[in-house]
């Protein structure tokens, strides 16, 4: 699904840590968190997203070096 990028531009690809802790390299375009979540079929209301350990709203623009962690909000109280 993803073309293996040449080594020197690897850092330009965004790292996506999914709720099940698998790591995905996302397309290297500037995009909003919302767009990225939608590509993964995730509703922004059901997760929190942090960049470098800080929570960000879903309409934040992310790109390049960013490392995003998606934290699922499980049901149960």
């Amino acid at each position: 699904m993803f073309k293996q990028p040449p080594r020197e531009v690897v850092r330009e690809h965004m790292k996506l840590i999914l709720p099940d802790r698998t790591i995905r390299v996302a397309d290297p375009v500037p995009a909003t968190v919302e767009t990225i979540l939608q590509r993964e079929g995730i509703n922004p209301l059901e997760v929190m997203v942090s960049r470098d350990g800080k929570l960000i709203p879903e309409d934040t623009l992310v790109s390049g070096d960013d490392e995003l962690r998606i934290i699922r909000i499980s049901h149960g109280g």
């Binding site: 500037p30 960000i56 309409d59 934040t60 390049g64 070096d65 960013d66």
Partner: peptide
Amino acid sequence: VPVQQDPP
């Protein structure tokens, strides 16, 4: 520091 877009 990488160029980063601020959140709203």
